[in-house]
């Protein structure tokens, strides 16, 4: 089940190439993850970021931030490229790139009020 959500390396490579040439980062997003599924995964974010990612405090709100920014940040966490990270590096590693991308889109589309 875990394996199925993680694209094969060469598939990912291909997708990244396509993405690069098309200049559209949203291309990878579409694959296989239903909107209901993304919503369920997004529930795991609310424990620290508040319902719908809207709570701003010591931990920042994530709702309504640009998808590209969120995605880049999540991937940086996952790849260990974000210095002085406390916990997001450990959490981001539990999700596929496609899931992180879908989450970025999901929260970008929530009105932060």
């Amino acid at each position: 089940m875990i394996r199925s959500i993680l694209p094969h390396k060469h598939t990912l490579h291909k997708l990244l190439l396509v993405t690069f040439f098309a200049g559209a980062t949203s291309f990878v997003h579409a694959e296989e993850i239903s909107s209901a599924q993304v919503k369920l995964i997004a529930g795991t974010c609310a424990n620290c970021h508040g319902t719908d990612g809207k709570l701003a405090g010591a931990i920042p709100a994530i709702a309504g931030r640009p998808s590209t920014v969120l995605e880049a940040q999540l991937l940086a966490y996952k790849q260990g490229l974000q210095p002085n990270t406390t916990v997001m590096d450990r959490i981001a590693k539990g999700f596929s790139d496609a899931e992180l991308s879908a989450l970025a889109d999901y929260f970008a589309n929530i009105n932060k009020d």
Binding site: N47, G57, T86, G94
Partner: peptide
């Protein structure tokens, strides 16, 4: 490959951040 503990050799700044995030987590 995911998860795990805070680093054993983390700086005081990281420990302070985690304490602040603990409060942020509680509120959230």
């Amino acid at each position: 490959g995911a998860g795990g503990l805070s680093a054993a050799d983390a700086s005081d700044n990281i420990r302070r951040s985690e304490a602040a995030y603990a409060v942020g987590w509680y509120n959230a």
